[in-house]
């Protein structure tokens, strides 16, 4: 119940901030638009070429879930510092776990929904502009699992890293800068995918998903350990 209250308040507040709204919607629109442009450019290519372009375009949808949460997660922590709302918030019965988890959810859910939404728009666009529709075999089970199962795990990873960095940082600008590092580890699978191109298989997705699950569990544990009200009150001046 308290978790839901926190999440709804965060969204009510975050979506009133133009810069945050702009930051969250620009990247999906830009990347989705760029992916669409790529497949539109290759519409005259033979099917193999179109498939290769389509695969490359899909990679953008693995970058999105790690980019969107960083802005939201950093602001949801830094915003509390800047507005001086942290002490009254910590004085409520909200537990450290609820606080940390709630702020992570605030960042993850919009990131995942935006990624899926833009991915859906991309598919509709691609099916319209490519003669014969989406190339056969491109939207394989491993790719769909990557988009629909890995992207939430990636978004959670990025949000947790951003939250941990923000909660340890004593300066909001530094928090924003360092939290950008949350994206770096998430680029590893993209590099692997790029190198293997169409050879995205279930085994790879499974391994990647497993690693992310373990990493997220460790980060959540560490985050809650670090995100203690006493530490925050003393450190955040």
């Amino acid at each position: 119940m308290r978790l839901k209250v926190l999440v709804l308040k965060e969204w009510a507040e975050l979506f009133r901030i133009k810069m945050v709204l702009f930051g969250c919607t620009f990247m999906p629109l830009f990347m989705g638009g760029f992916a669409g442009y790529m497949v539109w450019q290759g519409r005259g290519l033979p099917p193999e070429g179109q498939a290769a372009l389509f695969n490359a375009a899909l990679l953008y949808f693995l970058i999105l879930p790690v980019m969107i949460p960083v802005t939201l997660a950093v602001y949801s922590v830094v915003g509390e510092k800047e507005q001086g709302t942290l002490e009254p918030l910590l004085a409520t019965p909200l537990s450290d776990l609820e606080l940390f988890l709630g702020k992570s959810i605030v960042a993850v859910v919009p990131a995942v929904l935006l990624t899926w939404g833009v991915f859906g728009l991309f598919l509709i666009f691609a099916s319209q502009v490519i003669p014969g529709g989406v190339p056969e075999g491109v939207l394989s089970l491993p790719w769909l699992l990557s988009i629909f199962a890995l992207s939430p795990l990636m978004a959670l990873f990025a949000a947790l890293v951003a939250m941990i960095i923000s909660s340890r940082s004593t300066d909001s600008r530094a928090a924003y800068q360092f939290a950008g590092l949350a994206v770096v580890p998430s680029l590893v699978p993209l590099i692997v995918y790029s190198a293997r191109l169409t050879a995205v298989d279930l085994k790879f997705v499974g391994i990647e998903g497993g690693i992310l699950l373990v990493l997220n569990a460790v980060l959540l544990f560490l985050g809650v350990k670090i995100f203690q009200r006493e530490e925050i009150l003393i450190r955040w001046k």
Partner: peptide, 24 residues
């Protein structure tokens, strides 16, 4: 607290409702 911060973009009632719900 010494510096009683609020969510400035939310109204007084929204701020109060948020804390009321957290306190159950």
């Amino acid at each position: 607290p010494e510096n009683p911060g609020f969510y400035k973009r939310l109204t007084a009632r929204q701020n109060l409702r948020f804390f009321a719900e957290l306190y159950g």
